[in-house]
Design a protein around this nucleic acid. Structure first.
Lengths: 155, 155
DNA sequence: CTCAGTGCAAAGGATTTGCATGCCG
DNA sequence: CGGCATGCAAATCCTTTGCACTGAG
């Protein structure tokens, strides 16, 4: 996978585990060894990962358990699931654990890479969207701003 | 890059069919009766539709053919496929046939509604994204800016 | 000891595809 | 006519689930 700038979590590994532990605990989930491994793999990737990515990095993790744990982590607000036109879903840390960002999505291979925009652009977007949402009686939670095109590998 | 026309009324039915015919012809696809029906259903909906939506509106269309034709229409630049977290993919006319817009996506019921933003906001977003894409060796085609939240019905 | 977590295998389900037939050009 | 398009059924394949077992607390 082509990596741009590193976009790793702003948290140290130990802070990350602590934050995940808290979120799991709030939902009465245990922070088991397998879940720690999963968090480590996602953190090490520094970019959104698919199930094959995860299993390749940690072959002893059972796919079904990984899916189940990704679900648990998603419910706990630890990871977000990103569905693209590719075969697999991508997973990355949710925004409270990873600073606000957007995605470059390759229309050829489905690869997803993180990018960050200037704060003032974000502010303008939020204001404009809030206005449009208000007109439709829609209560906003978050926005997603993705750029679709050809990645460096597929160009 | 992505510069939509000013927001305006959609194409007339005959203009729409003409435009679709041209795009299919460019790829040496035929504009068959089934494809016409499909285009009519999507046009009548006026909002992104799923396969069940389409088949409900035209029960005589075979699902497999609809999927195949949606694929043909997508390859021809007539429709875009929108994958959300729901079970089904949504389809709507691609931007050259529908003015540039974004989506309000309900996290409860998965409904997708179209919205338009000011042109100057679009310009700022495009410029910012182009800059970020350049750093990653990414060749942009279009952006998607979706607002996730609770729709009027689910609020 | 109790119950959530795990791993294997099998199921689920949207989407795709093989193949014989029908229709467009 | 010739080849793309269609429709039915079957296959594909990511993801989810059933079930018995293991392990954390």
């Amino acid at each position: 996978m082509t990596r741009g700038r590193a976009a790793g979590p702003p948290l140290s590994t130990s802070d990350l585990h602590a934050a995940v532990g808290v979120r799991l605990g709030r939902r009465a989930y245990r922070y088991t060894n397998g879940r720690r491994r999963l968090v480590d793999v996602i953190a090490a990737a520094g970019q959104p990962v698919t199930l094959p990515d995860i299993v390749a990095a940690a072959p002893d993790l059972a796919p079904s358990s990984v899916y189940r744990n990704l679900d648990v982590l998603e419910r706990s607000g630890v990871v977000d699931r990103i569905v693209s036109n590719g075969d697999h879903a991508y997973f990355e840390f949710a925004e409270p654990l990873l600073s606000h960002h957007h995605h470059l999505i390759c229309v050829d291979c489905g690869a997803i890479e993180d990018v960050r925009l200037d704060d003032d652009v974000e502010a303008i977007v939020d204001r404009s969207l809030a206005e449009a949402a208000g007109r439709a009686g829609f209560r906003p939670l978050r926005h997603s701003l993705d750029l679709h095109g050809h990645c460096a590998d597929c160009a």
